[in-house]
Design a binder for these strands. Structure first.
Length: 280
DNA sequence: TTGTGTTTTATTGCCTCC
DNA sequence: GGAGGCAATAAAACACAA
């Protein structure tokens, strides 16, 4: 059984690559690259007809030299390993890889180019997921805060009403006493003074006191926040923990990692000197 | 078997860097 | 101006459901 990759070491098979790819890596590049001629275009080879063909010896014997092939699993594996090490290809490494794999340098370059594009697409998907999780968490916390705020507002209204009722009762009492002690001014003043003192001392048990300062009752801040503390709503600004997804072999590097870095401590920072990744 | 969506390999044109 | 990167795209291979 001939190993699928061997076709690329076979001179006749290499001829097929040459026909399609031209004579060198830069043969098709812009500037110095020459455009593919009509004749060359017409010589495009089809890929393998099926994955079984990859291992079918007769397939290689029978097919015309123009047949374009998919890379063998071994070739892809080696390319993946190389990509994992470094996602960009210096000319020397490209030549070495091409020799090793029996491919044209141009094929290796194209494979790396396409592989980078695939990586970028995946990365964008991951970034989207992270952002969406972060957004959902923020939205949820916002709803909680709105509800809490409404609850506190209704409490304030209720307490205010109670204070007003009590004040009215006290005013009535004072008025009644004032009528009874008409002519005894000093006694009335003394009684009113005592009532006021009683009222102040009886309402000062909590951390916040309601007092009458002529402009209506107010909440006096005793140090506790009106709003729920950060302790009460932890992670309000933090993104949801992003665990490694899919095959786990890719990095969590983000195209907008700066945006999320403060929000997600768990976001993995890839060593950008091209520490590398693979997903299968 | 066939239609359809996805993946892979390769081309093209434009851009940037040296 | 050449080399190489990237986005967009073509087209064949592949996967899979009906």
């Amino acid at each position: 059984m001939m190993e699928p990759g061997r076709i690329f070491f076979d001179p006749s098979a290499c001829h097929a690559n040459m026909l399609f790819l031209g004579n060198g890596d830069s043969a098709f590049r812009g500037g110095g690259r020459s455009m593919m001629s009509i004749e060359e275009t017409s010589k495009r080879r089809p890929f393998f007809s099926s994955s079984d063909d990859l291992y079918d010896e007769s397939y290689y014997d029978d097919q015309s030299p123009e047949k374009k092939r998919r890379l063998t699993p071994d070739q892809v594996h080696m390319l993946e390993k190389s990509f994992e090490t470094e996602n960009k290809l210096e000319p020397e490494r490209k030549t070495q890889l091409a020799k090793k794999l029996g491919l044209q340098p141009r094929q290796v370059a194209v494979w790396f180019q396409n592989r980078r594009a695939r990586w970028k697409t995946k990365q964008l998907e991951r970034d989207y997921d992270v952002l969406k999780s972060s957004y959902d968490a923020l939205l949820s916390n916002y709803d909680t805060l709105v509800k809490e705020n409404d609850k506190l507002k209704s409490e304030v209204v209720s307490l205010t009403e109670k204070v007003e009722v009590k004040e009215e009762e006290e005013n009535k009492e004072v008025d009644e006493l004032g009528v009874e002690n008409m002519g005894n001014v000093s006694g009335g003043v003394l009684l009113m003074s005592n009532k006021i003192e009683d009222g102040l001392s009886s309402g000062s048990g909590g951390s916040s006191a309601v007092v009458d300062d002529h402009d209506g009752p107010q909440l006096v801040d005793s140090g506790d926040s009106y709003f729920p503390s950060d302790h009460e709503y932890p992670g309000c600004m933090a993104a949801v923990d992003q665990s490694e997804e899919d095959d786990g072999s890719d990095d969590g590097r983000s195209y907008f990692s700066n945006v999320l870095v403060a929000a997600d401590d768990h976001q993995q920072e890839e060593p950008m000197g091209m520490g590398w990744w693979v997903w299968s």
